[in-house]
Amino acid sequence: MTAELRHPRRLDDSEMATWLPVIRFVQLLPQVLDRTLKDEVGLNHARYAILVTLAGQNDGAVTMTELAHIAGLSRSRLSHALDSLEERGWVSRTSCHSDKRTLSATLTPEGREMLRTAAPVHVDQVRDLVLDPLSPEERDQLSTILDKLLPGVTAAL
């Protein structure tokens, strides 16, 4: 069936066969990662992602806007998560040097230590659930597919 003849609000059987597993995977994976991190180290996946993002900045500060974008969180969810991380001593927030109205966040030494504890748990699970079941060729294919899909999703945020 040509694209012109398909109803734009209905997926055909082949499209549904592709789409339904995608939905299931993107809904279940964060739940599983979240539960394991909480059980093993007392940290949820969103907060882990924030720590990883900050750790990747080579001890540099990241503005709230940049961090929300990178971590894929709304500003309010990010603020709530940072409150929790700051209370635990893992993150500190300061005003940016160039614009005092802009807050930035940095990873503390205690936060870096938490990340060292949590990372092996996370990495093992990512390998078990996503990487190890795939051949090297399938990993390359998945990477290529996601590289095509992510720009559209990112732009829609």
Results as ranks from 00 to 15, higher is better:
9 R>D: 14
80 H>G: 04
137 E>T: 09
126 V>H: 06
76 S>T: 09
30 P>I: 02
104 S>F: 01
112 R>D: 08
91 V>Y: 03
116 R>L: 05
62 V>I: 14
105 A>R: 09
54 L>W: 03
35 R>Y: 09
21 P>N: 02
46 A>Q: 07
124 D>H: 07
37 L>R: 03
153 V>R: 15
135 S>L: 02
121 V>H: 01
123 V>W: 06
47 R>C: 04
45 H>Q: 11
121 V>C: 03
19 W>G: 01
112 R>T: 12
30 P>K: 02
73 L>I: 00
118 A>N: 00
57 Q>N: 11
90 W>Y: 14
128 D>G: 11
62 V>S: 05
56 G>E: 05
144 T>L: 09
13 D>K: 11
52 V>I: 10
2 T>W: 12
5 L>F: 08
68 A>K: 03
49 A>P: 06
144 T>Y: 10
150 L>F: 12
47 R>F: 00
146 L>V: 05
54 L>N: 02
116 R>Y: 04
133 P>H: 02
88 R>G: 08
13 D>N: 10
1 M>T: 06
148 K>S: 10
125 Q>Y: 00
64 M>C: 11
138 E>R: 07
152 G>R: 06
123 V>T: 13
25 F>T: 12
132 D>P: 01
44 N>S: 07
39 D>V: 02
134 L>F: 05
118 A>G: 03
3 A>H: 14
146 L>I: 08
84 S>D: 10
110 E>D: 07
83 D>Q: 13
6 R>S: 13
80 H>N: 12
76 S>H: 07
86 E>R: 14
106 T>Q: 07
24 R>G: 10
75 R>T: 04
3 A>F: 12
111 G>L: 08
60 G>L: 07
51 L>D: 05
69 H>C: 08
154 T>W: 10
78 L>A: 00
74 S>G: 12
127 R>L: 08
124 D>S: 10
71 A>R: 03
96 C>S: 14
141 Q>R: 15
29 L>A: 12
45 H>F: 14
148 K>M: 10
86 E>Q: 11
3 A>G: 13
118 A>Q: 01
93 R>P: 04
14 S>F: 15
40 E>W: 01
68 A>V: 02
36 T>A: 10
64 M>Y: 15
102 T>K: 11
126 V>N: 04
43 L>I: 05
71 A>C: 11
3 A>V: 15
135 S>R: 04
92 S>L: 10
99 D>T: 13
7 H>S: 07
156 A>K: 09
143 S>G: 04
77 R>H: 15
78 L>D: 01
142 L>I: 06
8 P>V: 02
132 D>H: 05
146 L>F: 14
123 V>K: 13
153 V>K: 08
43 L>P: 03
65 T>D: 07
42 G>V: 02
149 L>K: 05
6 R>T: 05
141 Q>M: 07
49 A>R: 15
9 R>V: 12
108 T>E: 00
121 V>T: 05
